[in-house]
Design a protein around this nucleic acid. Structure first.
Lengths: 105, 105
DNA sequence: AGAATGCGTTAGTGATGACTAACGTATTTC
DNA sequence: GAAATACGTTAGTCATCACTAACGCATTCT
């Protein structure tokens, strides 16, 4: 599961990325936002790190995690590669056509 | 795993969605594009259907699957909700700043 | 130096996922 | 009507995941 999209899809990891996007944080501060253990968060950070989506900087006894723009761009590229023109047309077409064929018998 | 993003994130299901986006297809035609069993494809279609991303129409002895624009819009909304302004800024900022802080010591 | 803080790591568990093989059921073809 | 086609479904397997509890290692504080 080394691809960025699969790594970022997990709900808790989505939130972690959003938190880190607003501002880099140490692990404990991240874990405080969740009900799961700090250990679980640490492992999620490991997955995100392995996918190149986050990086850590050691400051004193804390490890400040931040989102890596390069990884984020790779994620964006993966999403774009998935979201083909054909998929996009289905969305835009439906809005104008009042989805006539949607619930076809 | 009822949310659209988690359902769509799985690699095989991504491809299924793309295939169906180009043109609705019966199950066998979809399965022909993959190395896994038709049974596996059928189950993937079940997941996508449960997530409201695809729908089937019975024609003779075939079941023609197609992408549902409504579900696709829900997926798009979920992606947009994840991809916050803060995340987006990190991407756009990095391109102009030549990612100065990316590999900070 | 000793206690406390901040983290990573590991072992172990329960749940879930993706998959195959086999069977069952309509529907079409001959 | 019998064989073939197009599926769904199910049982069972194996791998992976998310998680907790416990431990260990630095680093800071007193």
């Amino acid at each position: 599961m080394t691809d960025a999209l699969s790594a970022a899809a997990e709900p808790n990891r989505r939130r972690i990325l959003q938190l880190l996007a607003s501002r880099p944080r140490p692990v404990t501060e991240i874990a405080a936002e969740f009900t799961v253990t700090r250990s679980a968060i640490s492992q999620h950070l490991g997955v995100l790190s392995e996918a190149g989506l986050v990086g850590a900087e050691k400051v004193g006894r804390q490890r400040i995690y931040r989102v890596l723009p390069s990884g984020l761009r790779r994620l964006q590229a993966e999403i774009d590669r998935f979201w083909t023109n054909e998929l996009d047309q289905l969305v835009t077409d439906a809005t104008s056509l009042t989805q006539s064929k949607e619930n076809r018998p």
